[in-house]
Simulated assay, not measured.
Amino acid sequence: MKLFVILFFSFLVSACASTNQSIVQTQSNQSYNHLPSLQGDYFKIKSTHVGRDFHINVRLPLGYQASDAKTYPVVYVLDGDSLFPLLAPTHLFLNLDEKLPEAIIVGISYGSFDPAINKRDIDFNAPAADAKPGEDGAPRFLAFLKSELIPKIEKQFRANAAKRVLVGQSRGGYFVLWSALEDPDLFWGRIASNPSLAPGRARFFEAASSHTRKDLKLVIASGTRDTELRQRNATEWGTTWSSRADAPWTVNLIKLEGGTHAATIGDTYRRAMLWLFVSDIAAVKVP
């Protein structure tokens, strides 16, 4: 009996140790502390407007801790579940190779690709006659960005509020364009990669809401290996707004030769950011 008790106790200790080790490893795997190109901060935010939680990853610039005065542009990345760990290191390389100004990169994530959790089909779609029932959450998501997330980022980090950039791919690109019409001044720069223009296609060619800033910029990018419909939409939107006198932004239509719908987002980001920050880059290169 005594031997049985000893063996049973040993088994429990071993099981607990194994469980604790598994927990520690899982927690460790969720941390970016061992990846310098992604280091910064993380927090979860409960949106009153949307009614759901979002996971926010923040990549801080190299040298951020060395100063308490310098401010940085902030790049807000939609679909952060996949795009944050890709574009944050890309920005670092662009800073090193191309002299792109360092920036705070904010990844807005759902925490899963599971449709039960990931609600991009709701949050990035605007109300329209041809929208699916319930898939019209763009106004609420825009309110979340404007009144909940952006104020928190600009209070907690040394952010340059005059140089906000919003990046979206595919359905996220739809939201980027829609938000540019609804609230032009909210972001100084916008990047819409291979966007759709449905539902509510007509809205994308109607006048933008009132604005005061004169320095706004917008990039719309289209890969030549994306669908013909999305290529036509991007070309029509880009050429139309490039020539309209009432456009709140300077528009740059980028055609990515051989570019696909999703896999060339890194190249889109590079070309778009170099165009957005061309004046800053030129200033760095001047002797």
Results as ranks from 00 to 15, higher is better:
residue 223 G to P: 10
residue 158 R to A: 10
residue 127 P to I: 05
residue 227 T to Q: 04
residue 139 P to R: 01
residue 184 P to N: 10
residue 5 V to A: 14
residue 224 T to C: 10
residue 134 G to C: 03
residue 162 A to C: 13
residue 227 T to R: 07
residue 213 R to L: 05
residue 176 V to Q: 01
residue 144 F to H: 14
residue 92 L to H: 02
residue 126 A to R: 05
residue 52 R to W: 00
residue 137 G to T: 03
residue 60 L to I: 10
residue 175 F to L: 08
residue 79 D to C: 04
residue 233 N to P: 01
residue 152 K to C: 00
residue 63 G to T: 07
residue 145 L to P: 09
residue 76 Y to C: 12
residue 125 N to T: 14
residue 28 S to L: 12
residue 103 A to Y: 08
residue 49 H to Y: 15
residue 278 V to A: 12
residue 149 L to E: 09
residue 126 A to M: 06
residue 165 V to D: 03
residue 73 P to K: 09
residue 207 A to I: 08
residue 245 A to Q: 15
residue 47 S to W: 13
residue 114 D to G: 01
residue 1 M to R: 08
residue 240 T to H: 10
residue 184 P to M: 01
residue 45 I to S: 02
residue 35 L to N: 13
residue 71 T to R: 07
residue 22 S to K: 08
residue 261 H to D: 00
residue 194 N to L: 03
residue 154 E to M: 03
residue 144 F to V: 08
residue 68 D to T: 14
residue 69 A to C: 11
residue 118 N to S: 08
residue 38 L to A: 06
residue 91 H to L: 06
residue 268 T to R: 00
residue 176 V to N: 01
residue 16 C to R: 14
residue 149 L to I: 07
residue 261 H to K: 03
residue 14 S to G: 06
residue 111 G to R: 10
residue 3 L to T: 08
residue 95 N to A: 09
residue 20 N to C: 15
residue 256 L to V: 06
residue 286 V to W: 12
residue 129 A to F: 05
residue 235 T to P: 07
residue 57 N to V: 01
residue 138 A to T: 01
residue 119 K to T: 04
residue 93 F to Y: 15
residue 25 Q to P: 02
residue 217 K to P: 08
residue 220 I to M: 11
residue 28 S to C: 05
residue 133 P to L: 00
residue 16 C to P: 04
residue 75 V to C: 13
residue 162 A to K: 15
residue 182 E to Q: 15
residue 92 L to E: 04
residue 95 N to K: 12
residue 129 A to R: 10
residue 210 S to L: 08
residue 159 A to H: 06
residue 71 T to M: 05
residue 124 F to V: 06
residue 215 D to H: 11
residue 57 N to A: 05
residue 153 I to M: 15
residue 250 T to V: 04
residue 212 T to E: 11
residue 161 A to N: 15
residue 57 N to Q: 13
residue 101 P to I: 03
residue 72 Y to E: 07
residue 98 E to Q: 11
residue 201 R to S: 13
residue 144 F to P: 07
residue 207 A to G: 11
residue 48 T to K: 12
residue 92 L to W: 06
residue 70 K to Y: 03
residue 189 G to S: 10
residue 210 S to Y: 02
residue 127 P to V: 13
residue 192 A to Y: 03
residue 32 Y to T: 10
residue 133 P to T: 12
residue 40 G to N: 10
residue 167 V to L: 11
residue 56 I to D: 10
residue 242 S to I: 00
residue 157 F to I: 09
residue 227 T to F: 05
residue 282 A to Q: 08
residue 32 Y to I: 03
residue 233 N to I: 03
residue 180 A to I: 13
residue 17 A to H: 12
residue 74 V to C: 14
residue 287 P to E: 15
residue 249 W to D: 03
residue 22 S to Y: 13
residue 233 N to V: 01
residue 172 G to A: 09
residue 255 K to I: 13
residue 76 Y to V: 11
residue 236 E to W: 07
residue 220 I to E: 11
